[in-house]
Design a protein around this nucleic acid. Structure first.
Lengths: 193, 193
DNA sequence: AAAAGCACTTGATATATATCAAGTGCCTGA
DNA sequence: TCAGGCACTTGATATATATCAAGTGCTTTT
């Protein structure tokens, strides 16, 4: 279980056996069946979570009970609600498993401890946040610049692995369009080629 | 000039006189007249910039020469292109002054030095990035969940200071709608009250 | 193996938003 | 101080996308 996380870490930073052990000791394994929740709206999120297997989504539910997918995450990605974690406020989001999944959870406190005692780990975490910011800014740029078809094309280019394994109606939601619209776009796009 | 930045820093973290001086020494003042560029597409951005006076915007330009505003920033905010700074790649964005403005620039190298030698500064920077991420995620959520009128209302609620000082057509661009649409929405909204 | 439930598609129509084209009023710079 | 140029508004129309309603074919459950 931990092996995958260890490999991920070692591909990014240098870690002594002892440091690796420190990390292992604070990891808690969490398995989820398809459709099970990792986090429900209203809960407070207190972890950092690394996915070793599977696929999850973060989504919000609006007044009209419509779901809006904010994010997908698969193996070797982090997931969680940074807002709730940072502010200690109840989450406005839900996270559930799209496939049977396995995660490693590290509590906020333990995570802070690791960052303090392992500088490379701290640097890695900072880098990840920077990268997430850049990625999400790109998404904002796309959402205000592109039409529905262009958004879909960019999505496939940027995240082909995800495009292949999540249901189409969730992709539509992620892109801010209806499933019907995405279905028609796909039909048109395939004709063009 | 530096006074405003010093106050900002001291309101967030504890700093000795010596530490404050270290920071001051690496700050470079940059004044911009209205409409002047801080960064142009294709340039590489190598700083962290703090605004002590004025108002700026970050925007992209698409194939059809349409401008799309990604961000506004005013006094006591940071601005720059994190993507270009992080990756060392040419910027895809432009940043220019909406009002006559004054900024303090700290080069990437000096900034890294400050973070190394002043742990509280490091913490502050991390916190800012975390917060930016949360804010931008909220914007994504709005952009996929809300219609044009709702987006505008949220924007005024969240950023009233900015709503009052930037031209309406730039707000429209920021919200991903045409100026005409925003104009009509404002008319309708004002009738409702 | 049949039944039920999804996910996706397709068609008809409605609605929100964009586009194009004037028109108004207010700054601003010569 | 006047002329020109913006920023914003308004109207008419076009277009993209949403909504509603079936219909099809898989997959899952029993």
């Amino acid at each position: 279980m931990f092996e995958i996380f260890a490999q991920y870490l070692q591909s990014k930073i240098e870690l002594s056996d002892q440091e690796l052990k420190m990390i292992e000791e604070v990891c808690v394994v969490r398995k989820l069946r398809r459709n099970q929740y990792l986090l429900q709206e209203g809960d407070i999120w207190r972890y950092n979570a690394f996915i070793t297997k599977g696929c999850l989504r973060t989504y919000s539910v609006d007044d009209r009970s419509m779901e809006h997918v904010l994010n997908f995450a698969i193996e070797n990605y982090w997931i969680g609600d940074r807002e709730s974690l940072l502010n200690g406020t109840p989450s406005r989001f839900n996270i559930d498993a799209i496939e049977d999944s396995t995660l490693l959870l590290i509590s906020k406190e333990n995570f802070a401890g690791l960052m303090k005692s392992i500088p490379q780990f701290q640097d890695l975490v900072n880098l990840i946040i920077e990268r997430s910011f850049v990625a999400i800014q790109d998404r904002i740029n796309n959402s205000i610049s592109l039409n529905a078809e262009e958004k879909y094309i960019r999505f496939i280019e940027k995240q082909p692995q995800i495009a292949l394994r999540v249901p189409q109606h969730m992709i539509a939601s992620y892109l801010g369009m209806t499933p019907e619209t995405l279905s028609r776009i796909r039909k048109q796009s395939s004709k063009k080629q």
